[in-house]
Nucleic acid binder design. Structure first.
Length: 421
RNA sequence: GGAGAGGUGGCCGAGGGGUCGAAGGCGGCCGCUUGCUAAGCGGCAGAGGGGUAACCCCCCUCCGAGGGUUCGAAUCCCUCCCUCUCCGCCA
């Protein structure tokens, strides 16, 4: 949630920044301003009445103790109460409306974010490794051949976009998870194993709700949602907290499956395991002071890149343009790994600074040395999407005779196995 | 699933219709005292919102959440949520 005060004091700035994302967002600012003005008018009215009521009520208390008659005053106050109730209802209606508008306004792009409409305008910032050319089987073909990806099994059990990983494929995926977690924890990230089912307000806290309901799996009976990313539980772990400045930056890492309905992506990536309703991901989260968050974003990206470097997979880092930014982010780097069969880079990580956008929603603050409270900044990034990394290994480490070599750094996690055959 | 207990300020904990934003304790901050420390003494401190250019200040709201009763609710009534304990079941 962006700061209402900012909208009030610098509406043009907010409009201009939102326009970078989408022209259509500008009207939300005007809506918020109007509602806010109206709301404050009503608040003033209500509070005047309440002040009057409180004063007279106290009088009644005094008079009663002196044994005096208070009938007239009481009648008087009954009328005031009716008025207060009426105006209070109006105030609640307005506040509810305003809140809905505020919760649906995305975060403002950072000044360093290039303008653009969609992913075509993203800017490549650096590259690592040499993209492998020449013919390789797409990961779904080699995966089926080696009997490690069972698409039939997945659809039997759960339908489309579900896949069963078997045998050494399963072991390789587990190796990847362990490798990633070990790497990140060695750099000071605390490992966390959170619940995968969370309450509605938790998803509001990180920005998935109220806008993206259709992307989420919901367990109706218990009112719980399956997490679409570990970012959700990890960031919300700190909701309502006031942290000490000295304990920042907090760094967390977590392996969880992610559950996404992928509504509106019909026909995209229907083959293979690039786009699944359930996939494994190792996530990185940081909670920082406001003056550190951009520096920490850079190092977060480096920490995620490190995984690909050590796996010796060619990748590039891309700075997202304004139009491609996610809802809660001010600035995002995607890391894309090379897929030889598709002759292109595909996203395996998305690292974002959300500044105080989520902190406002979950009321996460820290106390500075001079005793002031400030909203903390939150950052998140994949480190990495495990399924896609596995798919990329199946292609980049494919041998001419149809085997897949185990990347060096994973060998110790694979019981010494060097090839998947 | 059954039975019970409970949710009050940073923490512990009292208060059971008006003078209660809330005793007391711990912790915090600022003084004073004091070889140092400790102790002691005195004082100051909640959050959100509205009014204001801003401050002082004034006002409103907040005792898990939401309703209700009342002139007036932390306190009485209803609903819900959460936590804990015991029993049962279960990996």
């Amino acid at each position: 949630m962006i700061d209402l005060e900012l909208i009030r004091k610098r509406p043009d700035f907010v409009r201009e920044r939102l326009r970078l994302r989408d022209e259509g967002l500008v009207k939300l600012v005007d809506e918020a301003l109007e509602l806010d003005q109206e709301r404050r008018r009503v608040i003033r009215e209500e509070e005047e009445l309440r002040a009057l009521r409180n004063k007279k009520s106290k009088e009644i208390g005094l008079l009663k103790r002196q044994g005096k008659d208070t009938k007239a005053l009481e009648e008087d106050l009954k009328n005031i109460r009716v008025k207060v109730e009426k105006i209070h209802e109006e105030r609640e209606r307005l506040e509810e409306k305003l809140k809905r508008v505020l919760l649906s306004i995305p975060n403002l792009p950072h000044e360093s974010v290039p303008y653009g409409e969609d992913e075509r305008d993203n800017v490549e910032v650096r590259k690592f490794g040499e993209p492998k050319k020449g013919k390789v089987l797409p990961h779904w073909e080699i995966g089926e051949k080696l009997k490690i990806l069972d698409f039939k099994g997945g659809s039997t059990l759960s339908g489309s976009r579900f896949t069963v990983v078997r045998g050494f494929g399963a072991k390789l995926e587990r190796a990847l998870i362990n490798f990633m977690l070990d790497l990140h924890t060695s750099k000071g990230y605390e490992e966390v194993l959170p619940p995968h089912l969370v309450r509605e307000e938790i998803l509001i806290g990180t920005g998935q709700l109220p806008k993206f309901e259709e992307e989420l799996y919901k367990v109706e009976r218990d009112g719980l949602y399956l997490i679409p990313t570990a970012e959700v539980p990890l960031v919300n772990l700190f909701r309502g907290k006031t942290l000490k400045e000295e304990e920042l930056t907090l760094k967390l890492t977590s392996y969880t499956p992610c559950y996404r309905r992928e509504a509106g992506s019909y026909g995209k990536d229907v083959r293979g395991i690039i786009r699944q309703h359930q996939f494994n991901k190792v996530e990185l989260v940081k909670i920082t002071r406001e003056e550190d968050s951009y520096k920490e974003l850079e190092s977060l990206v480096r920490d995620a890149e490190e995984v690909l470097k050590l796996l010796e997979l060619p990748y590039r880092v891309v700075l997202l343009c304004s139009g491609d930014l996610g809802f809660s982010a001010t600035k995002t780097y995607d890391i894309e790994v090379w897929f030889p069969s598709q002759n292109k880079y595909r996203e395996v990580s998305s690292c974002s600074n959300c500044e105080d956008f989520q902190s406002r929603r979950i009321n996460l603050k820290y106390r500075t040395s001079d005793g002031k409270k400030r909203f903390a900044h939150t950052l998140n990034g994949s480190g990495l999407a495990v399924g896609r990394t596995l798919a990329s290994i199946l292609e980049n480490y494919q041998t001419k005779d149809g085997k897949v070599e185990v990347p060096k750094v994973l060998k110790e996690y694979m019981g010494g196995k060097t090839f998947v055959v």
